[in-house]
Design a protein around this nucleic acid. Structure first.
Lengths: 191, 191
DNA sequence: GTCTATACGAGGATAGAC
DNA sequence: GTCTATCCTCGTATAGAC
């Protein structure tokens, strides 16, 4: 079950960024956590910017795979939407909000490469969700407004915001659920 | 037009926190910006935590006054809601998201006093918005679901999320508008 | 109130031994 | 690949002069 060091570093860094943000985690923190020296981290990731860039890239790729998997399942659009929402719901138990939502808050601090990765992440989310909404509309299960794209963006905004609001409440997941359920009740059915 | 130093410090710090977050601004940054030495800041605000706590407190008090002002105007609930949304819309031009939205992302890094202030800010927003929704419902202009409170929370989440999403897009305000308009179209009318 | 000077640790990063 | 040692900068904070 032993992972290679690069993976361990990424996993630890991801957890820390999702908790504290870009500026509030350090190589020293990671080193301490996984039991190596901080100089060793530089061997795998020459700079902090490099590490975070890889982090976002990996995060997006994993999300793409998860979305693809949802698409492959033979379930209704409503159920697919719920699966998608669950991607944002999961991980919230450790008080971990979306990696890219957190980094978006730090946006102006980040270098342009990382910013580009964040745009890419958002674009992937948005286009996938747009396609889902279109399928649902064509199947007649949802009536959407003029712009399906902006409906998708609204849902994403609501999910990111729900994670934030839930963070302030002590029992986060219930809060997240009630907010998202209220918003999506006409879209989710009662699956 | 000369402000006192404490005010200047608060204003500068607020702008920086809204841009970069808690961990990515420093006394040195503020000092440089307003042309004093960083030691002088400690005279007004003994510690960074103290400064940020005062910042959130002031921010909430200003918001309370603005909300009160909206309530006093003789306009429809729809128009009042739009005014409220504009509170979140304004300030976005300088790429400044809500102070408390930003700090919520940094939540786990902050001390308990600041966390308490953030809870208070959210509570004020939520209760004000809840009362507005209730008035609208009683006046028959909106039909709301079971829980007006969670409808309020959902709107807040959407506003915070819209600020985040807009941040990634280059032209932020248009993005914010389209997201919020889509969401609130049945609530806002076309005022 | 604001300054200089300073303490002290943390942060990111590199060189070179093993 | 990982280590020790080290560099240099920045961050928060305090003491004491003006």
């Amino acid at each position: 079950m032993k992972q290679n060091t690069a993976q361990q570093i990424l996993d630890t860094a991801q957890s820390m960024v999702r908790n504290r943000g870009y500026s509030a985690f350090s190589y020293a923190d990671i080193a301490k956590q996984i039991g190596i020296r901080k100089a060793s981290i530089h061997y795998h990731f020459p700079s902090k910017d490099n590490l975070v860039k890889e982090l976002v890239k990996r995060y997006r790729e994993i999300l793409e795979r998860k979305c693809f998997h949802i698409e492959q399942q033979e379930i209704t659009p409503q159920e697919q939407l719920r699966e998608f929402v669950n991607l944002y719901r999961d991980g919230l138990q450790d008080n971990q909000i979306c990696l890219c939502g957190m980094l978006t808050a730090d946006f102006v601090v980040l270098n342009s490469e990382i910013q580009a990765e964040l745009r890419s992440f958002l674009a992937v989310n948005q286009s996938w969700l747009t396609r889902l909404l279109q399928r649902g509309r064509e199947a007649g299960v949802w009536e959407c407004g003029e712009s399906v794209e902006f409906e998708a963006k609204t849902i994403l905004a609501m999910l990111q915001g729900a994670q934030l609001v839930a963070r302030v409440a002590d029992n986060s997941i219930e809060e997240f659920d009630r907010i998202t359920e209220g918003f999506l009740k006409n879209k989710l059915g009662n699956s």
